[in-house]
Every structure is written in C-alpha cells, then in structure tokens.
Amino acid sequence: MSKVRTSSGGIAGMPSAVLQIPILAVLIGSWYGLTETNVLPKFFFGEPFKVFGVIWAWFLSGEIFPHLGVTLLETVLAFLFGSGLGLAVGLWLALSPTASRLADPYIKAANAMPRVVLAPIFAVWFGLGVWSKVALGVTLVFFIVFFNVYQGIREVSPVLLANARVLGANAAQLLRTVYLPSATSWVFSSLHTSVGMAFVGAVVGEYLGSSRGVGYLILQAEGVFDINTVFAGMLVLTAFALVLDQVVAIVEKRLLVWRPTHGETEKM
C-alpha cells in the first residue's frame, strides 16, 4: 500500500494547496447554489452554511468532544487489539505449516464473510458501549494485518535466514531478529488501511446502536430528519479521518526510516 506523493503541484510547480483550495470552493459553491435555487431540495441535501453552523456550534460549546473522544478511543483500541491479534496469528500460521493447512478454509470463510453483519451480534454480546464497536473494528483490522504478516513471513528472504543461522542465531533469536522485524514492517505498510478500517468499525458500530460517539450523533439527527446535522457529522468524521491518516503517515515515516524510498538523494 504505497502511495506516490508529490509535494509540489504539476502546473508550473505551484504549491498543491493553491490549486486544491479553489476546487473545494467550487464544490461548496455549487452545493450552495444548487440548494439555494432549489434545483436540489434543501430537505434532502441540506444547506452548507447551516451545516457549518452546526459544526461551529459543536466545537464552540464543546459538545462534540466527548463524542469524538469515544470514537477515537474505539478506533485506537480496535487498531491495537486487531493488529496485535493479526500479528500473533499471522506469525503462528506462517511458521507452522500444519496449523496453516488446517486453518486455511476457515480463514478464507471468515474473510469472505461481510463482517459488518456481526455488528448486531456484538451489540448483544458486548452491549451498546465502547466494546461492541471495538469488537467490530477488530474483525476488520485483524484480516488486513493477518494477511500482510502471513504473506510477509512466508516471503522472508531465505538468504537472511541462512545468514542469521550461520551467525549463530537459535530459534528464539531468529524469531526476534528476522521474523518479527520483517513481520512488523508488513504491519506498518498496512497501517493506513488498518487504521482506516478501525475507524470504519467504530463509526458503523456507533451508527447501528450506541449512546455516544459521532456515529451516534448522525444516527440521532437522521431520526428527526435533521439533514444538516447528518452532513455536519459526516464532515467532522472526514476531517477527523484525514487527521488520523496524517498521524499515521508521521508515525510510519519515523518507524520505517530503513525502507528505501524512490529517488531518494541525500543532502551533502
């Protein structure tokens, strides 16, 4: 999951923001124009300035923070448990061919199942609080990390393994110095996707039944046909997801310094 990022825009090397902000303005402008002229009914499509008003009020009163906090907590817990579990099971199955052979059809079945349908069951099992959302997030994150680690371990260079053995590594040292670093590098490379999935798990879980969280706000607003608040919730979630993605990008950069990047040159 590597993305090619360009820091400067294509048109005459202008900073991307200079070109990107007008696009946003055009989008919001046409939203405003189409709803004001009733080409799109306000009832279904909301009014941009009222949406911004709702967001403003949320942040001004501080009402949004406990909800954001809950959603963030669910996301982080789901990510930690999901990737921990994925790493452990991935390592185990990759290193044990017998276990892998036995588990194979079940893993495939579990992965093929649309796991969002588990949300009602988790709500019954774990209640309407934080844990039912964490459980849903875990099922989503687990498979991403698991498959990455499993593949990563099986593709560890045989030369690296042979070299470590010649240098005197025992089984535990081999696991610690070759398999684990190799596996974690695969976990990190799936970081963007898995954090995103943890977030999806949290919001979908909240939306299907909860007492707090941004998903809950959307659910409540939808119940009274307050379309502006629904849009406000969506925008807050989007902004929040972007912030999470940035945090992940920074963490990734720190942790993967050893990884070659294309066209990297060193300043003398």
Partner: peptide, 20 residues
C-alpha cells in the same frame, strides 16, 4: 548441525534491511 567454526558470505544480499 550448523558448522560453528565457519563464516559464510552469500552471493545475494544478506544484510538485514531494517538494521544499520
């Protein structure tokens, strides 16, 4: 088992990419 008296330099890259 392993030859503890021998060092082995491989043809392919054998350095761990995540270590300096």
């Amino acid at each position: 088992g392993m030859n503890r008296k021998a060092g082995y330099m491989f043809q392919a890259e054998s350095l761990m990419p995540w270590r300096s």
